[in-house]
Amino acid sequence: MRYERALLGLVGLAGFGAVLEVAPRIGLVPARYAPPSSRIVAALADEAGQARFWTAVLETLRSWATGLAIAVAAGVALGVLIGSVPVLREATASTIEFLRPIPSVALIPLVVVLYNPVRSTLVLVVYAAFWQVLVQVLHGVADVDPVARDTAHAYRFGRWTRVRYLVWPTALPYAVTGVRLAASVALILAVTGELIIGAPGLGQEIAVAQASDSVPQMYALVVTTGLIGLAANLVTRAGERLVLAWHPAVRREVLT
């Protein structure tokens, strides 16, 4: 069953690659716009031999990771604080509901005139990722089991003990989901910042390739961002399993 699944997946990927190879060659789509997949792979191999490419990859990864780390730290800290103080939660609910849907790209012109490109991109990444984490953590803290809370009261848990042994385990699965969502949003914003504002990184390389009309290279760079996104998904999902290994949902999945 497992092997069949993996085999079908490989067949699907191979078929996808074959269609992308053949369609431009037989003139189904103009080769100028959509180079055959072999040429994209060749361009990617060519890129991988250049130091410039790896610098760009590292720049993108750095602004992504920095922004995500700041957003997660701030989102978790504020989420636990606001979530566990009812007055704060009530008072900030409307503000959070209002600020959260503001599209982060709306801030692009603003950060462009206020900061340099690298800083601007970081601000965008942090802003976009922060809300994902904060909202999830708030949901999580609100989800504490009433019986467990009463038990903690009965045993006179202190403030810190309550956060550590009651709130944190309840909120953790939510927080982890928030981090997963935040990770993909952060990558989108990191690349957008590079593409539009011109911070160094893969996005900027794509803009350069576009300006110099080197189409296969552009495709190769887009594929690279896709691979980075894929790796980010896999890593966050593996991290989720690791952090939540004790959680009933994950344990059930392993059993069956």
Binding site: S184, L187, I188, V191, T192, L195, I196, L202, G203, I206, A207, A209, Q210, M218, L221, V222, V223, T225, G226, L227, I228, G229, L230, A232, N233
Partner: peptide, 9 residues
């Protein structure tokens, strides 16, 4: 996994 903005070009 491809960030949608890079598809714009």
């Amino acid at each position: 996994a491809i960030p949608p903005p890079v598809l714009v070009p």
